[in-house]
Nucleic acid binder design. Structure first.
Lengths: 203, 203
DNA sequence: CGGTCGCTTGACGGGCTTCAAATAGCGTGG
DNA sequence: CCACGCTATTTGAAGCCCGTCAAGCGACCG
């Protein structure tokens, strides 16, 4: 078990991947830095998510807590022994990796081809869906445990553009800010159509 | 075994993931489309690569041949049976997924944070490294089996910008075009420093 | 209630896209 | 083998979206 305060890191990019984690409370960000300080957040983690599982030798990113966070961890050796004794788990991990990969691909589409407003709308929709998966109920609101800069670094934008797009979504009546860090979705379909595209499936 | 002509597709996004493939000759592109036709290529595949392995139920992208291509395939059922009989293979597949995931993360950094010239330089370096892995020897040249539009859709740019950045790299003396579809690297270090950043590893 | 820090808003500029046209490469058929 | 024609690629000009720089505002905490 490990407790983290905001800003504290779990591990850094390049560290040997000696542990496997499960998030029990809180929220985390995963990121990589370029030499000149540019940063790309490659994902956020929430309770129930696994960390450092689909990793090969070294961690490929840095992980840092966004808020008070609690993790369960195992040494990779113990984890590997456990898997060896429970082969059906391996299949499950495999599914997990496939899911992560699909998510990464969706993010590539977002970063490569979507406009700023579309990116923010897509992000909000996925946070809403996550909130629903967590509670098991339909939801109209969700929290934003991360800063505007974090959102920007996740969406490949700047904090100013995030702010402006937020204003844009608000003025279009799609969302409302119950607080700086809490979003209420007023028009889910509108948000979806702003998020655009979503793959059509056909060539 | 399956043979494909250029432009022929192996499967489409949303198809049930009934098969697993290995590339033996040729080259392929993986992509998703947005409703209005915008396209993001999420990867290219070359001999030795596996296709449709880390996939959950449905394929998450369309795959299309860039040139004359040959694939070996297995039904997913047969593949799963094979894995069940050879548990050590599962571990290997796992490693494969981890590697794919790391690559996806690098692409997110490229799409989210790199400038056009940096993207093209990064792409060329990775093609050069792939050519070296394929031959097992140091290389100074590599092929471009894909069109400028494909490159653009992979890098999140337009074909015009790709052309201009190509001219830029040429004028800086970093590369030379032996043909439209064959690149010679004249200054690998220069290319590397243009590709920028590569993660610094430290926070 | 005041200070600090994060967020928002505004003005401006730049890098990439868009639209358009010229050129080059390449397969085809004579 | 060469000429032709088609398409991909390159090059040019103009515009726009988002980034940058700067200032103002607002929220939260002590």
């Amino acid at each position: 078990m490990q407790r983290l305060r905001p800003e504290q890191s779990v591990f850094h990019e390049g560290d040997p991947a000696k542990r496997v984690f499960m998030v029990t409370h809180g929220a985390l960000k995963l990121y990589t830095l370029l030499a000149d300080g540019r940063r790309q957040i490659t994902g956020f983690m929430f309770p129930g998510d696994f960390l450092g599982v689909s990793v090969d030798q070294e961690y490929a990113f840095t992980v840092e807590a966004l808020e008070e966070t609690e993790l369960w961890w195992f040494s990779r050796d113990a984890f590997d022994r456990f898997i060896a004794e429970h082969p059906q788990v391996e299949r499950e991990l495999y599914r997990l990796a496939a899911h992560e990969l699909a998510e990464a691909q969706r993010q590539m589409v977002l970063l490569g081809r979507k406009a700023a407003a579309e990116r923010l709308a897509s992000f909000f929709l996925s946070l809403l869906e996550r909130a629903e998966r967590a509670s098991g109920l339909p939801e109209r609101t969700f929290d934003l445990p991360m800063s505007r800069i974090d959102i920007a670094d996740y969406l490949g934008l700047t904090k100013e553009t995030v702010s402006r797009m937020l204003a844009h979504l608000r003025s279009r009546g799609l969302i409302r800010l119950q607080a700086q860090d809490r979003v209420e979705v007023l028009d889910r379909d509108g948000l979806r159509s702003m998020a655009q595209g979503e793959s059509v499936g056909l060539a």
